[in-house]
């Protein structure tokens, strides 16, 4: 990706850190917690159940065989927050190190849990966990048509830093 990316000069935050217990708009009690290596199977289960039509730029992989290796790879570093309801994982937000001192962000919420405010809570708690882990610069890519996602990212402090491509790049600073 673009190493010369510009980051907002103003830091956003502070953000709430996990663990936290929230009630979503459907009245479900949802636990937000840091992922551990023990979360691997729960995450694989969530991504197995993920609607392929809602994949973003090729992830999660459509081939079930490739889901576990992908989850294991991304869990290997960075900051991961999961949403848990009834013992199963319903959402995952992550900051994955990009090798250049910054972190790439993504969020996935299982279809049956969408539209209940879990994505925003996950995002805010991920940023809180990022603050605790001394993360400073964060970026993401989002498909241009995905207005709801862009609005959500903008509302927590992301700014569009590149808009001349098929997908759009946003960045934010915390701490």
């Amino acid at each position: 990706m673009n190493n010369a990316r510009e980051y907002p000069s103003t830091d956003a935050g502070p953000f709430p850190a996990p663990p936290a217990t929230i009630e979503d708009r459907a009245g479900r009690t949802v636990e937000l917690e840091l992922a551990t290596t023990e979360t691997l199977d729960g995450l694989v289960e969530m991504y197995d159940a993920f609607d392929p039509a809602q994949r973003a730029q090729g992830i999660p992989p459509s081939d079930p065989e490739r889901i576990k290796p992908w989850v294991a790879t991304i869990l290997d570093g960075g900051v991961h927050v999961i949403a848990r309801h009834d013992q199963s994982v319903s959402g995952h937000a992550m900051l994955v190190p990009d090798g250049g001192g910054a972190f790439e962000l993504a969020i996935f919420v299982l279809q049956s849990y969408q539209g209940a405010g879990i994505g925003r809570q996950l995002l805010e708690h991920l940023l809180g966990a990022g603050e605790a882990a001394s993360v400073e610069r964060i970026w993401l890519t989002v498909e241009r048509w995905n207005t709801p996602a862009m609005e959500l990212y903008r509302s927590v402090g992301f700014e569009t830093v590149r808009a001349d491509r098929f997908d759009l790049e946003m960045a934010m600073s915390i701490q």
Binding site: Q57, G58, D98, G99, E104, T141, R165, F166
Partner: peptide, 15 residues
């Protein structure tokens, strides 16, 4: 190509 967390993106030339 893939971003660090595995998202596919198209290079400038391809676009």
């Amino acid at each position: 190509r893939d971003t660090p967390l595995g998202k596919r993106y198209l290079g400038r030339i391809t676009e």
